[in-house]
Simulated scan of single mutants.
Amino acid sequence: MAMSAGQDDGEPMMEMNTTPLIDVMLVLLIMFIITIPVQTHAVKVDLPQNANTPNNVIEPDKNKVTIDAAGSIFWNGAPINEVLLRQYLERTAVMNPEPELHFAPDPQARYEKVDQVLAVIKRANITKLGFVGNEQYRNDF
């Protein structure tokens, strides 16, 4: 099969040969890809804010994490942030025996905040977790 689109009557082809143009475009594309600078992305890292926290905030038998309606996190009644919560949970995970963690979100707390705290607890590999206060809703469903 002939690849020519011309006629057999001896007339010259009137269409332009696009193969060299495609080759040049591919070479230019490869050169642009090679010369693009490497993209650097910033990674947000939560650094510990106070590494010298006292050990008396962690109880040896049970600790309670609560979330109020405004979305504030509390550890045994003291307000904390997610970074400090992560530090406390990491310390309790290595204690022997591991203390129980009682989790009691306010019924008016946003689900998104409760989900974020539960994700922090899961990432800390806490095995003794209990939801406190849910017994008041047992007859609602």
Rank of each mutant, 00 (worst) to 15 (best):
G71I: 00
Q7R: 05
G133P: 03
F131H: 05
E135A: 14
N17A: 07
L89V: 02
V120H: 03
E90Q: 15
Q39C: 03
I126V: 15
Y88F: 13
K64D: 07
N139G: 04
G133S: 02
N81C: 01
E15L: 07
A104T: 07
G130M: 04
V94F: 04
L28K: 12
L28D: 12
G133Y: 01
N125S: 14
P20T: 05
A78I: 04
P12K: 05
M31F: 10
D61E: 13
M3D: 12
R110T: 06
V43T: 11
N56V: 05
I33K: 12
T35A: 10
A104C: 06
E15S: 12
D8A: 04
V43E: 14
M14V: 09
H102G: 13
I34G: 13
A2D: 09
P20W: 03
A124H: 01
A42C: 04
M31D: 12
V83I: 12
V24S: 14
K64P: 02
E98M: 11
E100D: 14
A124M: 03
N125D: 15
W75V: 00
L29N: 11
P20F: 02
Q108G: 09
E59R: 11
P97V: 07
N139C: 01
E98K: 11
N56H: 08
K113N: 09
M16F: 07
D61A: 09
P107W: 00
I34Y: 12
R86K: 13
K62Y: 10
I121L: 03
H102T: 06
P79C: 00
A93F: 04
V24T: 11
V43L: 14
N81V: 00
V120F: 00
M31S: 15
P48I: 05
L47W: 08
T92P: 05
P48M: 08
P107S: 09
A70K: 11
E100I: 08
L26E: 13
V120N: 08
L101C: 10
N63A: 08
Q87G: 08
D46L: 05
S4E: 08
M13N: 15
M3V: 05
F131W: 03
D8E: 06
A5Y: 01
A42V: 02
A42K: 06
N125V: 01
T53L: 15
V38S: 09
I73A: 00
V27R: 15
P97M: 02
M16D: 14
A78D: 11
V83W: 01
P48E: 15
A78G: 07
P20Q: 04
K113Q: 12
F131C: 07
I36K: 12
K62N: 15
F74W: 01
V120Y: 03
E100G: 15
L101Q: 08
Q49N: 13
D68I: 00
P20G: 05
K128N: 15
N134W: 04
K122M: 04
E100V: 10
F103H: 11
P107Y: 02
V43K: 12
N81L: 00
P20E: 06
Q108Y: 04
A2G: 13
N76E: 03
